[in-house]
Each structure stands twice: as structure tokens, then as C-alpha cells.
Amino acid sequence: MEGFEIFIYICLVTAIAFFIVAMLLKRKKNDQFIGTIFLSFLLISVTIVIISFFIGGWSGMGIGLMGLSIFIGTIIGIVLTSLLQLFKIT
């Protein structure tokens, strides 16, 4: 299973990027844009997965896994942001 760590890295980078952007927006009191960013990340990941069905073959499967990694990273990022907001850490 060598080579699949790239999908974990994509997931982690997406989660960290979403988390950092959400924290920066909270500090500047622009909380209304967090939902917009969340929806845009989700739409991007779903679009990538849908495009992968039209490509087909191993390339399509790889692109689909990238879209799935972005989707999972977005969910992890929103959960972390929600947990920090729940416990009022930031």
C-alpha cells in the first residue's frame, strides 16, 4: 500500500487550512463567512468526485480518492472548529 499516504496528506492539509481560515475569520469577527467557506470546500470535493466518474480507469479512481480526501478533511476541519467553539478555547 505504498503511495497512498498522499491521500492522508491531502486530508490533513485540507483540515488544517479550513481550521486556520476559520480561526482567522473568528478573530476578525467575520463568523458568517465560515459557512460559506465550508460549503465551497464541500462543493469542490463533490465536483471532483463527479468529474472522476467521467474520466474512468485508474486516473478517475485516483482523482475520486483526492476528492474524497478533501471531503474528509473538510469534515474534520469543521468538527475541530465546532469543538473549539463549543469549549470556547478561542
Score class of each variant (00 low, 15 high):
Ile78Gln: 05
Phe38Val: 07
Leu84Lys: 02
Ile75Phe: 07
Phe18Asp: 05
Phe53Trp: 07
Gly56Ala: 03
Phe33Asn: 02
Thr81Glu: 11
Leu25Pro: 14
Gly57Met: 07
Ile70Met: 09
Leu39Phe: 15
Gln32Arg: 05
Ile70Asp: 01
Met66Ser: 12
Leu83Cys: 06
Val13Ser: 10
Phe19Cys: 03
Ile6Val: 03
Ile89Leu: 02
Gly62Gln: 09
Thr14Ala: 02
Ile72Asn: 06
Gly77Pro: 02
Leu65Val: 02
Leu39Ile: 09
Ile37Val: 04
Lys29Trp: 15
Ile34Phe: 01
Gly56Phe: 05
Ile10Glu: 01
Leu68Tyr: 14
Thr36Leu: 03
Gly67Met: 06
Gly73Ser: 09
Gly56Asn: 00
Val49Ala: 04
Gly62Ala: 08
Thr36Tyr: 07
Ile37Thr: 02
Tyr9Gln: 01
Ile89Asn: 00
Thr36Pro: 00
Asp31Ile: 11
Gln85Ser: 14
Met23His: 12
Val79Ser: 00
Ile34Glu: 03
Phe19Glu: 10
Glu5Met: 05
Lys26Asp: 13
Gly57Pro: 08
Leu25Met: 08
Phe71Asp: 13
Leu43Tyr: 10
Ser40Pro: 07
Leu24His: 14
Thr90Tyr: 12
Thr36Asp: 04
Met1Ser: 11
Ser82Arg: 10
Trp58Gln: 15
Tyr9Met: 03
Gly3Tyr: 00
Trp58Thr: 15
Leu68Cys: 13
Thr47Arg: 12
Glu2Asp: 14
Val46His: 12
Lys26Leu: 15
Ile48Ser: 04
Ile70Arg: 09
Thr90Met: 15
Val13Tyr: 11
Ile89Trp: 03
Leu25Cys: 06
Val46Arg: 15
Leu86Pro: 05
Gly62Lys: 11
Asn30Gln: 12
Leu84Phe: 12
Tyr9Val: 05
Thr36Glu: 02
Glu2His: 11
Leu68Met: 13
Thr74Ile: 07
Val49Thr: 12
Ser45Val: 07
Met23Gly: 13
Thr36Ser: 01
Asn30Arg: 12
Phe38Ala: 04
Leu83Ser: 09
Phe33Leu: 04
Phe41Leu: 02
Ser40Gln: 09
Gly77Trp: 01
Thr47Asp: 10
Gly67Phe: 02
Lys29Asp: 15
Lys88Pro: 10
Ile63Tyr: 05
Val46Asn: 13
Phe7Ala: 00
Val13Cys: 04
Lys28Ile: 15
Val13Gln: 08
Gly56Pro: 07
Phe41Ser: 02
Leu12Val: 06
Phe19Ser: 08
Ile48Phe: 01
Met23Arg: 11
Lys88Trp: 04
Thr36Arg: 02
Thr14Met: 01
Leu86Cys: 10
Leu25Gln: 08
Gly60Asp: 00
Ile78Val: 06
